[in-house]
Design a binder for these strands. Structure first.
Lengths: 220, 220
DNA sequence: AGTATATGACTGACTGGTCAGTATATGAAC
DNA sequence: GTTCATATACTGACCAGTCAGTCATATACT
């Protein structure tokens, strides 16, 4: 299914000029161009010719890196999801109390998608019940993210910080909220502010007093 | 744009057999068939031939009722949104206290989409940044729904039932939560139960004690 | 030379939309 | 109630455009 997965990359060459930048970096360029297009137009409307043009390569080249249009679409998707999950995961700080970790998780995710509007848009309009492969990727990734969040909430319940609620339900609430917040709330308020307020909202919904443990933005 | 809108219908004929059911009812049949297809496959994959086949009419007939494939898609969309908003609106009971009205709104909306999984699926995957017309319909409908909800919350804040939060933010949270709840929560728990718990969750996030005003499911 | 990579004109399949023609309904005239 | 006339609803073979994917050729690199 995938070739050129994570191969060679930088053998021993010294040159990396403007055009001939690369081997596998070109794959990134194609993915980036494709994302930009897919984010603003439906699958159907994005032609391989235009992807090629945007990426600055010939159409045939696309087929050296991706088996098909579908595979390209899928590549964009899994690439983005991987990054998302890595970011999400890496921001976890086991030292902090649960309330803060929840707050932090929300903030990180909001920030992540806020800085990647294209991917957000793209991801928001992926057809869930589509081709099997596509489905499995999303499903799996969603589960990963959800479980991460749900177990956090579970811990909170266990330790008595949160009310006894369905962690899965709460997780969906949080993720749904972030999604619709970023997609539909205009630019009338700065995102960081919204993010904080959303955190409070969510913590309150979990039965925790958000003001209680508040500590203002300890730098890094 | 639309012909056969709400015309003649039943002149004076007595017969209405299985096939020759109708004039404008056929439009509904086409919309229903199209919805079923669009809900499970991307726009691209749904051909007019298959819509025609599913609706039991010839392809040409589709073009008697809809100007184009896009118009058909759009028809499915606005049809569903109209129904949604009407349901939403008609469930409003100005006599109830705010807390109960919020609870009720959530319940009604969850139930509505739960009974219309196809439309939910369809609606969830509509490409937001698509054709202008499509956009305007969704945008307008979303605003209507949001405003309805937001003003409810505003009232709650004014009357001191809710904490001072951004009503718009809270609205997005609620809608996002409903959406992701229905789309991703499996069948492991009955929807009515989830709906109630979600109501409590949301009320708590708004700063109201959900158990306080609780009254068990007054019939009708 | 030989290998890997890139190109872009070409093709074959697909599908939205059309339209000339058929079927059905309505109704008037006898 | 039969016949004919007119209007309306429907049909499906057909066409023209589009586009994913191919491949013979070219170019760069070793």
């Amino acid at each position: 299914m995938n070739r050129t997965s994570t191969n060679s990359a930088g053998s021993h060459n010294g040159r990396s000029f403007h055009v001939h930048d690369g081997q596998a970096a070109k794959r990134e360029r194609i993915l980036a161009s494709a994302l930009k297009l897919f984010a603003h137009e439906p699958y159907q409307a994005v032609t391989m010719d235009r992807v090629a043009e945007a990426a600055g390569v010939a159409k045939g080249t696309l087929y050296l890196y991706f088996q098909s249009k579908d595979a390209l679409y899928l590549g964009v998707l899994s690439d983005g999801l991987d990054t998302a999950y890595r970011t999400y995961q890496s921001s976890a700080d086991p030292g902090l109390p649960v309330v803060e970790r929840v707050r932090r998780s929300i903030a990180v995710m909001v920030e992540f998608y806020d800085q990647r509007r294209d991917f957000l848009q793209f991801f928001a309009t992926v057809e869930p019940r589509l081709a099997e492969a596509r489905n499995r990727i999303i499903e799996a990734s969603r589960e990963r993210g959800f479980n991460f969040c749900a177990s956090l909430i579970e811990e909170g319940i266990r330790t008595g910080v949160f009310t006894r609620i369905d962690p899965r339900l709460a997780t969906f609430t949080i993720h749904g909220a972030i999604r619709s917040l970023l997609l539909y709330y205009g630019a009338s308020r700065p995102v960081s502010e919204l993010s904080r307020e959303l955190g409070n909202l969510m913590l309150r919904s979990l039965g925790a007093d958000p003001s209680e443990h508040f500590k203002p933005e300890h730098p890094q």
